[in-house]
Amino acid sequence: MKAVKDLLKKREAAVFLLLVVLVLGVGIVNPIFLKPDTLKGVLDNSLILILIATGEMFVLLTAGIDVSLGAVTGLSAVVAGLSLNAGISYGGSILLAVGASLAAGIVNGFGVALLEIPPIIMTLGMMGVLRGLMYIITGGSWIDTIPTGFKNMSGVSFAGISVFAWIVIVMSVVMTAVVKRFKSARIFYYIGDNEEGAFFMGISVKRGLFFAYSLAGLFAGLAGIVFVSRIGFIPMQTGSGQELRAIAACVLGGVSLSGGVGIPLSALIGGLFLTTIDSVLVFLKVPAFWNDAIAGAILLVVVLLDFRFRMLLEVKEKKERLKYIRISRNNETGVVR
């Protein structure tokens, strides 16, 4: 019983269980859903969201927020597309695209850490700037001439799972291990948990914030590369609204917007969960246009349940504490008598 309770306390584990139940439940209604190809498709579809959510997680850990990541993904995709069409090698194009996204992240980090502009303002402004920039550098037209070789990269698989998926999963697991083991990687947690406390402990809060926003830009850039390879053309809306879905994925996976709580696996599980919901409806023969309503409802239910659960725990802990106080008081009166 205690093990179950501990598991429920860890949101990522609870949501993972919920995900498994969801997949199996849908599988019972419609067995086609449990076919390896379907599940692999869901995994591949979730990669872009997972990458953006992983970047977002580092910012959320510091109690910040980055609403420019969807636009950063779009910028990365556009830069990659333009460089590929200009005849630059695959590696060079990827470097340029990720470099541009990293630069965008660095600007965010500069504004938040050094100029001390509130994160939502800085990144909201950057969202507008980057979206406009996409139009300026492309002239507002879609890019649909991606070299076939680049598109084929997303089709390469190893042991039945696409290489992109392998990279994302391994990266997520390794990063989770790193943030759990290495003290220098826990800087984001210290800042999010108690910024002043971290400062007095001698942690460079500014450097930590700067790194968090730069990392977020980097991951959004990787998401853009996956987008170009998987989707094969780049509309102007690329990445639009993805920042909010990424935040939703993080929250589902157990990342707290107050900072200090969450692991890279949270982003992975949350992203998988949201993508699964999107794919599940088709298999339940519900029209796909109800996707967002259901995703929103599930997000609300999860955070509300989490809230109720925390309140229950708090009440229980308070009761326990009061019990001890009462006992000790009785003892005191006993001694006096």
Partner: peptide, 30 residues
């Protein structure tokens, strides 16, 4: 939801943002 819980308003309205626009597209789609 904001008044009766300690969940950040951003998270609440993020959820309802998806919910309301989802209901709207749902009705429109139907």
């Amino acid at each position: 939801l904001v008044a009766n819980t300690d969940i950040q308003p951003l998270v609440i309205t993020l959820g309802t943002m998806f919910l309301y626009s989802g209901i709207a597209t749902g009705i429109a789609g139907s």
